[in-house]
Design a protein around this nucleic acid. Structure first.
Lengths: 239, 239
DNA sequence: CGTCTTCAGTGCGATAGCGAACAGAGCGCT
DNA sequence: AGCGCTCTGTTCGCTATCGCACTGAAGACG
């Protein structure tokens, strides 16, 4: 495992050949992202892209009536700001920090230049984008066909995969915002999970006790996303 | 307007500079796609990509329990088979022809080669992909927050934009599959639209009478998708 | 002309999720 | 200790959607 705050903790950066990596390195700047911080707003141009090495960032869509919906979560396996190299410059959603997060940021212009060179960076960024499409697609399916119970399990698992411990700091109210459901719906589902000894929680701190149990209880969506993400972006630990 | 079966009827091909276009031309082959035909299956490698010049193709996800959900629709503004140049080769969904469709197909290998050259083709394909991401995202939001009534309006409008006339051949049962709801739900919503003189229909043939009325009745999702698609892929008719 | 198949319309009980309102519990602050 | 804020638990009535079952109407076909 690369050392604690190395850029190599980000799976995209870690996947680059040395030459490409070193071309980016001088422009990478480590920053801390506080909880709730917004990395970009709907429709706004972004001066930087971000490569997280720790923590979670949510991609959110806010409707005209103020309802919210999470489209995907991104952690150290990805990047925030794909609209830049996709050619649109902007995208109609927000990126919000969901748990204390450290990331390397890179000036937009550098990324665009390097991307247009083709090569390994382009390849891995496109693969990540495809993984993101898969995740958004699965969110669409899950919103349509699965119960709040199942969605909560999926959401906990996706978050857990991006955190170092089995605890996450997140109130039920915030989870409800992410899932786009009522707070009470989350409370009810969480109660059931606690009764069945899968999790415990109190005042914004959720501890997962039985991860396999959660997986069993989740819908197929979690596994589908995980499988496809791992296929497209293999863990660097592979031999 | 280019002539009736010219590849230039496809917005992506039309956006290419002459040189890029002519490089593809010898490999393009016009084919007719019958209703219900599947262009690719979940997880399967695709020997061709398709550039429709007429008709509609749906991207569908089928759950383990057999429920379906439409993620996006593609017409002459786009391409079927983005997973090829995104680096994943395959994607976990199906592409199904939803209305009589003509398209130019291109061997996968040619596309990959041309894409990796960079240039205008790469640019426009990536922009189209971003538009597709927007559409999938909006589908996720719509599934979550909007009523069947609203979703039906959105769906009719998206289809209408891709057809030459104000009629579409499509049973309520099939629409229900696309929206991932019950057939009766669609029947009920359609009844209301007919009562209010927005559409008429009979045995699988829907005629739209009042398009502005539909737009008023639809949720914000239709406009959001259309705006973003037009921003990313401008109509070639623009001066 | 009668028979079949496909589409659309309807009714009914069950249920998941919604919105609003309120009660209690844990924690920080003074 | 006492106050106030945030977070969680619970209730209640309401509505949209579900699943199921059946009817009727339009066209296809022999």
């Amino acid at each position: 495992m690369p050392k604690e705050s190395s850029p190599l903790r980000n799976r995209i950066l870690a996947a680059l050949p040395a030459a490409d990596y070193e071309r980016l390195l001088p422009h990478l700047e480590l920053i801390e992202l506080p909880l709730g911080h917004s990395l970009y707003e709907s429709g706004a141009k972004q001066p930087y892209v971000y490569f997280p090495i720790e923590g979670i960032v949510s991609l959110l869509y806010i409707t005209q009536t103020g309802n919210s919906a999470e489209l995907a979560v991104v952690g150290s396996e990805g990047m925030i700001g794909i609209a830049l190299f996709m050619g649109g410059e902007t995208a109609p959603n927000r990126a919000v920090v969901q748990s204390k997060c450290r990331a390397y940021r890179l000036p937009a212009q550098i990324l665009k230049t390097q991307f247009s060179e083709g090569g390994a960076l382009q390849l891995v960024l496109l693969k990540f984008t495809q993984a993101l499409i898969t995740q958004i697609s699965q969110t669409a399916v899950c919103n349509l066909h699965h119960s709040v119970d199942q969605q909560l399990c999926r959401w906990l698992l996706l978050s857990l995969d991006r955190l170092p411990e089995n605890r996450l700091q997140m109130t039920q109210e915030l989870i409800a915002n992410m899932l786009g459901v009522r707070r009470q719906g989350v409370t009810e589902s969480a109660r059931k999970l606690e009764q069945d000894q899968l999790i415990t929680y109190s005042r914004g701190l959720i501890t997962v006790l039985d991860r396999p149990g959660l997986e069993k209880r989740s819908c197929e969506c979690y596994a589908a996303v995980k499988t496809e993400t791992d296929r497209l972006l293999p863990q660097p630990s592979a031999p």
